[in-house]
Design a protein around this nucleic acid. Structure first.
Lengths: 249, 249
DNA sequence: CGCTGTCTTGAGTGGGATCAATTAACGTGG
DNA sequence: CCACGTTAATTGATCCCACTCAAGACAGCG
């Protein structure tokens, strides 16, 4: 069971005295993902440790709600989150899934624009906004890295928009699976076995479909021999080339 | 006639010896839109002038094609462009429309990801990539401004994705018109009269619809008294509140 | 073993796409 | 100024696919 229980979201829980391993994770993420520390002195590392807080998010917990004022930026160090937008009448869209290494804070707004919910037991590394501002002022390298990430995110957003606007359900799903596989591959995994931390309706709300259509499309891809579904949340990519020219690339 | 003729795109034409007005425009755009020059010395302005080139784009001209290596960044100083992606089988999506003041260059790729086409007689201010790199290294303020813009663009992309995924045709069109009106308002225009530089099929390919549906939806909004269409390319917003709660905001 | 929540599968409907024809807008040349 | 030709936009008729509603299968867990 990797899915959150209905609507009973547990409140977020801080980690006021982070253990050394959590702190090391945070620094690690800062180093690896934001490349701040490439040439930091020991006291600079100390300064970083002071502004960095690890926070646990059990499955189903909500990190933020749309409309709330933003207080921190985050880097996901483990687990998975979803970014949810809901219309007045309940229509839902999932702007994206946040996986380990992803940075949360690239927005021009001072309020959250999404509900941010944990779809697996997760852990984030967080920095308060004013302190992040200081860091960015102090390390131009960080600013540059953030801009790089933002540009990459913009490219991804354009790809997603094309998929939403013009791909058919099977193409959307193939595209989604390949994208997920590529992301897991970048984190070191082989790439043929993709784990889906999210449920069918999350996929549907991400691709602009219904749960039923997603389910039917999974069966269709399976019957065509393009994928296998050993478990509900595990997809094995049998014919990557086949998937790839399904989504017209 | 503000629409490009069929497929006969005129090649882009450089302006090797830009007149003083073009140069002033370029500097103006750099100042106003990237806020580089807020505290520049005269010789720094000279340096900027040297890297800045104005380029005219007649209606129908192509500034770049998807797949080509990127050579410059641009700021649009007049007219309008469209960013087009085309699938192998001809399905088309327009990622966005570029209006005066917009910056072209926020991408992580070193190749163009869109066809960039002028949908009106246009003019861009361009800077070669290596020189832009220098500028960014020299002026941290510029880097910060670009990041701000990228973040804003990301927010807009999320909004667009929600619209593509979950809004109905009438809602999509209402959202589009309001967004366009807001954009014109930011450039000083009153806001009740929106000029559409693009044709119906461009709107369709932007919203993930067909030309016919866009046309039908226009008539529907008109019959409901929400808008008026004095000319083909002019929309008058009669009931802004009505439009606004159509798209669920 | 039954309960709960999720996923799958089925049958029927509706809305946007498709195909096709008409109308409108604009520019040109007589 | 008007008739013509071209291109874009509108309107109409039909179809198809994804949505909707509903039932059934499956897994996880107490």
């Amino acid at each position: 069971m990797t899915r959150p229980h209905s609507g009973t979201a547990v409140a977020t829980v801080d980690d006021p005295a982070p253990g050394c391993s959590a702190l090391r994770d945070c620094l690690h993420c800062s180093v690896r993902h934001l490349a701040v520390c490439s040439a930091l002195s020991p006291d600079e590392v100390q300064a970083l440790e002071r502004v960095t807080v690890s926070q646990a998010l059990p499955l189903g917990a909500t990190l933020a709600r749309a409309g709330e004022p933003r207080q921190h930026v985050y880097t996901l160090t483990g687990g998975a989150l979803r970014l949810v937008r809901t219309l007045a009448d309940g229509r839902r869209q999932i702007s994206g899934f946040v996986l380990p290494g992803d940075y949360l804070g690239l927005t021009g707004s001072d309020h959250h624009r999404h509900d941010i919910e944990a779809i697996a037991d997760s852990r984030v590394c967080r920095v308060a906004l004013p302190q992040m501002k200081d860091l960015r002022a102090r390390y131009p390298h960080l600013e540059r890295k953030l801009l790089q990430r933002a540009c990459q995110a913009l490219d991804d957003a354009a790809d997603a928009a094309l998929a939403l606007a013009r791909l058919q359900p099977a193409e959307k799903l193939a595209d989604f699976l390949l994208r997920l596989a590529a992301r897991e591959a970048r984190l070191g995994d082989p790439g043929l076995r993709v784990t889906l931390p999210m449920g069918r309706s999350d996929i549907a709300d991400h691709l602009g479909l219904t749960m039923e259509t997603v389910s039917r499309t999974f069966t269709k891809l399976r019957q065509q021999g393009l994928i296998a579904l050993p478990h509900l949340n595990t997809v094995e990519i049998l014919d990557e080339a086949g998937l790839r020219d399904l989504c017209g690339a």
